[in-house]
C-alpha cells in the first residue's frame, strides 16, 4: 500500500496531463455528437421522406461501424484521400460522428414522446414546422432527453480512451506508457481507473438529478 501511494505521488502529475486531453476529447466529441445528432433527428422527424431516409441510412451506417475502425479510417485512411488530421482532431471527429447516431435516436425518441396535441395546438395558432419545434416541441423534449444524454456523457468519457489507439496521449495512453516503462502495472492502472471513476461520479450524480426531475413531472 505504501508503494502505491509513493507511485501515486510520482505518476499523478503525468496522468493529470492525460486527464486534460481526456476532457478535451470528451467535451469536443460531446459537442459535435450533439449538433450532428440534432441534425439527424430533425431530418428524421421532418416529414420529408428523402431527408428521413437519408438520416436513417446514415445512422445505421454509423452504428454499424466500430468506433475504433472509424478512428483508424479518419487517422490512417483520410491522408490517402488528401485530408490529413491531427490525432486529436481525428479522435474528436470520430467519437463525435460515432456517438451522433445514438444521440440522434435519443433526440428522436424525446421529440416523438411529445403529445400530438401540443403540435396541433401550435399549428392551430399558425406556427410552422420550425417554430413549433423551437417553441413547443424541443423545450419539452429536453426534459425527456436529459437522463439518457447524461448516460451518453459517461459512456463518451470512458470511450475517449479509444483515442489512445491513434496516439492521442489521453489518460489511458499515458497510463499505458508509464506502465510499460516502469512495469508498475498495478499502481498505474489502479490510478487510471480511480481517475476515470472520479470524473464519472459527478456525471452519475447529474444523471440521477435529471432522472429525479424528469420523474417529478
Amino acid at each position: 500500500m505504501k508503494g502505491f501511494w509513493r507511485d501515486a505521488v510520482e505518476f499523478f502529475p503525468i496522468l493529470l496531463n492525460g486527464v486534460a486531453l481526456t476532457i478535451v476529447v470528451t467535451v469536443g466529441s460531446l459537442l459535435l455528437s450533439t449538433v450532428l445528432g440534432l441534425v439527424w433527428a430533425m431530418m428524421r422527424v421532418s416529414g420529408i421522406r428523402a431527408l428521413s431516409m437519408l438520416s436513417a441510412s446514415l445512422i445505421n451506417v454509423i452504428r454499424g461501424i466500430p468506433i475504433i475502425v472509424l478512428l483508424f479510417y479518419l487517422y490512417f485512411v483520410m491522408p490517402d484521400l488528401g485530408v490529413t488530421l491531427s490525432a486529436l482532431q481525428a479522435a474528436i471527429l470520430g467519437l463525435g460522428i460515432a456517438y451522433s447516431a445514438y444521440q440522434a435516436e435519443n433526440f428522436r425518441a424525446g421529440i416523438e414522446a411529445i403529445d400530438k396535441g401540443q403540435i396541433e395546438a401550435a399549428q392551430s395558432i399558425g406556427m410552422g414546422w420550425w417554430l413549433t419545434m423551437r417553441r413547443v416541441v424541443l423545450p419539452q423534449a429536453v426534459r425527456i432527453v436529459l437522463p439518457p444524454y447524461g448516460n451518453v456523457m459517461i459512456m463518451m468519457l470512458k470511450d475517449s480512451s479509444q483515442a489512445s489507439t491513434i496516439t492521442v496521449a489521453e489518460l489511458a495512453l499515458q497510463g499505458k506508457l508509464i506502465a510499460s516503462s516502469t512495469f508498475k502495472n498495478t499502481s498505474v492502472f489502479t490510478l487510471v481507473a480511480l481517475m476515470y471513476l472520479t470524473m464519472s461520479i459527478p456525471l452519475i450524480l447529474l444523471v440521477r438529478h435529471f432522472e429525479k426531475r424528469a420523474g417529478k413531472r
Binding site: G117, Q118, A121, S124, I125, G126, V136
Partner: peptide, 14 residues
C-alpha cells in the same frame, strides 16, 4: 389559422 382559432377538447396548453 391566424383568422380561425381552435379550442381543443384536451386544452393542449403548453
Amino acid at each position: 389559422r391566424t383568422q380561425v382559432s381552435m379550442v381543443f377538447q384536451r386544452f393542449n396548453l403548453f
